[in-house]
Design a protein around this nucleic acid. Structure first.
Lengths: 203, 203
DNA sequence: CTTAAAACTAAACGCGTGTTTAATATTGCG
DNA sequence: CGCAATATTAAACACGCGTTTAGTTTTAAG
């Protein structure tokens, strides 16, 4: 039952965000009652935290792990991100949802712990790349990091937003090409040395 | 009082989205009671519609108007968008908020009327540009339109998201440069085809 | 001044939310 | 089996939401 709740929470929270899903919806989707949320996770927020840890915890650890071992080619990092994001297409939506939700601070420190922790890494990575001469010297690292992260996110936002807004129905093949197209935008640094690290978590 | 409600609704709805603002919050911010919302706008949704028309109605009309007069250089359209978006920095946030809100359909047909109406125009514009040889022939118009719109939006999303997520505090000057940087990404129509999709990556 | 429409206020309504309680069913082990 | 620990259920709680009602003040024309 605990895992059934986590499953339902994953599906609903990731798609619609914390506020737009009720505890009852999750309970019903899991085939039980809201009381079970309190029993296993204290409250709705606890369920959200647990679900978050289960879903994007592995992703965070993988990225952090592969960044720890010295210098990484930005292109490799981007490719890695693209693959994990493609495998978990709703994470970008979740992050945008949650960041836009609260009035300045985060829901606890979730996003700060997850997405926020990776931002300094990206900046540091770009600084290293600049130092090693892989990108031009006059690069504004902060703005470049912003562009980088935004462009890495937008295909996965577009996936769920394009239909409603543009009247476009994107099939999997087009998404694939959109991701490739975006990745090509960032052919920074030297040539990407094949596939260095691969995400092996859930499809 | 009617306009005071519209003012308060603009500030709150644009920043936080429809669901995350209560009728009482708006009423208090306007120095009155929720009953006035019913009096002037029937209900919360009516207030939302009225506020939407007042805020982005002129923008929509201006863009539609300038598109009516024959062929437009994509670069001009982008520059125009950048200017209006810079003048109304919360519109992008609102659109994303509202698109992410409902489960497939929109809140009524607002976004379809506003943002959605412009999407076909962008696609048509790109098709014209391709026909006139301003962009490369093998351009996928749908995907390009997607990239185009996303990239035009992201600086204005980043403005309010960068702080919380990246720990970056962007001042007005940096925003200015970010917008210019993004606009340069899409120097379509005036630059040779091969160069069009390559970022220059400088501040 | 009179008076009726318009503008505004205060209070309550029904409903859905997250949460909690109290009672019951199920499990697992000596 | 006996029985405590665990799991689950159904019902209710207090609260905030959007909305509505009924009554009062203000406005402005005759």
């Amino acid at each position: 039952m605990r895992s059934a709740l986590l499953d339902a929470a994953s599906k609903l929270f990731l798609k619609h965000g914390f506020d737009r899903v009720t505890a009852r919806q999750i309970a019903v989707a899991a085939g039980t009652t809201p009381a079970m949320i309190h029993y296993y996770f204290v409250n709705k927020l606890g369920l959200f935290r647990a679900m978050l840890e289960r879903v994007i915890g592995p992703v965070r650890d993988m990225i952090a792990g592969s960044l720890q071992g010295g210098a990484v080619d930005p292109a490799v990092l981007i490719r890695m991100h693209m693959q994990t994001a493609a495998a978990n297409p709703w994470i970008a939506t979740l992050i945008v949802n949650e960041v836009l939700a609260e009035k300045g601070r985060f829901r606890g420190t979730f996003i700060r712990e997850f997405a926020g922790r990776q931002a300094p890494l990206v900046i540091e990575l770009l600084q290293r790349a600049r130092a090693s001469g892989n990108v031009r010297e006059d690069l504004d690292v902060r703005l470049a990091a912003l562009s980088l992260m935004s462009l890495c996110m937008f295909p996965f936002l577009a996936r769920h937003v394009a239909g409603p807004v543009l009247g476009l129905k994107l099939d999997e093949d087009e998404i694939e090409r959109l991701i490739a197209h975006t990745a090509r935008l960032f052919a920074v640094g030297t040539t990407p040395p094949g596939r260095a690290t691969r995400p092996e978590h859930r499809a």
